[in-house]
Design a protein around this nucleic acid. Structure first.
Lengths: 229, 229
DNA sequence: GCGGGCGATTGATTAAGATCAGCCCGATCA
DNA sequence: TGATCGGGCTGATCTTAATCAATCGCCCGC
């Protein structure tokens, strides 16, 4: 594996404090892999053999039950999954698939657990990462349980706008049907939500979003840092 | 604070590995408090000044948005909250209230963070605890997003039965309206779900649940370890 | 023992969202 | 260039769940 790639990983919050020795132990058994779009990298229920770190591309975490499917989250460069399963040595709770061509580092779970035992700094970094994931999961649950679907869509658009530096014009990052699943609704209803949000100062054409009246949209969405971070 | 109480706490997974010195540092600033039923111990949005550990009683974590409220989880003896906020030094994402008379230990967040920095064993224990909470949150989200409400009720009853050692007769642990909120439905619909589950071999009278046909109930519920643990 | 209050239940109604079906449009490819 | 396929849109319909309203039953205090 190219040294340069590891230097990049080394600087991630998860590894920045680890001892050189520990980092080398992690790297030793690790490998990088390229995946084409729409490839399953992990299947829920299977043992967590590797911690995954995304170098580039984007990945969807999703779950299934009785033939139904729901999107749990979208991940991008430098994100990791699925840490909790690795640490606890328990099966994955979610499946993972690439949304586009993606490059992923895989580190054997056993190595992670061993370094975690011996390197206090690494353990602390993991705590921070897990606490962040946990809080994100809580926010997501609040979003689903407390808001109706057009409200979720409105807040999602506000968050996207924020990620795009506050620009009033930006692109949806994924297919609409993925976004719909993530927001806990059908593609049809996402479409209808976009239609009704026209009256709140948003227009969506294909992947392109135009926020024409941020105040009206914000007033409708009632964004809240304890949900939308 | 009575020494005996701390001995009990000392044996919790979260503290069992910590050095004596660290444990003493944690105990030094801690105090125990009794709360009457229906008392708010924490309000979402406020800074996380204390890690809470429940000695006895039961506590509900809940959230509000725009006048709506939802129950996020129920906690009992030896459970802790809200660890992630304490570690990250960020505001609570959920409010907490007692459901009955409860006894709670409060440890200043700063002490937790300091010991966390210096005691690797404590940090590791926190990782385990956080990973468990995270996985629980994911399971809960899957439950809400993938299942219709009578399915959630059925699986909730199966879980209760399991907690009661597999007995076919047991009591609901909380008021029905709390359970309804937790399961993401109205009390009316919880009532209707109970009524429809009669045909699946369950009868609910007041707080008393009677599982008369576990096979039929199970077949309807399709319990799954990746959701119901 | 008698009201009063609250949670639970039940039925009627309304609203929200899912499903189904038909159509459009742009990308792809023969 | 024309055919095909898949994603997305839209309207109609159906299902689910929320809301509203009335009643019941139980606990508690007077």
């Amino acid at each position: 594996m190219p040294i340069a790639k590891f230097e990049e990983i080394r600087s991630l919050p998860l590894f920045s404090g680890t001892r050189d020795e520990s980092f080398r132990a992690l790297v030793r058994g690790a490998y990088v892999q390229n995946f084409p779009p729409h490839t399953e990298l992990a299947v829920e229920g299977e043992p967590a053999d590797f911690l995954h770190i995304i170098v580039s591309g984007s990945i969807e975490l999703f779950s299934q039950w009785q033939g139904r499917e729901t999107s749990m989250s979208f991940l991008g460069a430098n994100d990791t999954f699925i840490l909790a399963a690795t640490i606890k040595d328990r099966p994955y709770l979610m499946s993972a698939r690439t949304l586009e061509k993606s490059r992923v580092i895989l580190i054997p779970s056993e190595d992670i657990r061993e370094v975690f035992e011996n390197d206090a700094e690494f353990a602390k970094a993991i705590v921070i990462e897990l606490a962040t994931c946990y809080r994100q999961a809580i926010k997501s649950a609040k979003n689903i349980k407390l808001r109706a679907s057009p409200e979720r869509v409105a807040n999602y658009l506000l968050k996207l706008r924020c990620k795009n530096g506050g620009a009033d014009c930006f692109a949806l990052p994924f297919e609409k049907r993925r976004i719909a699943e993530f927001l806990g609704m059908t593609p049809e209803n996402l479409s209808r939500s976009f239609a009704m949000l026209k009256s709140k100062g948003v227009s969506v054409n294909g992947q392109e979003v135009h926020v024409e009246d941020i105040d009206t949209l914000t007033e409708f969405a009632h964004p809240n840092p304890l949900i939308d971070s």
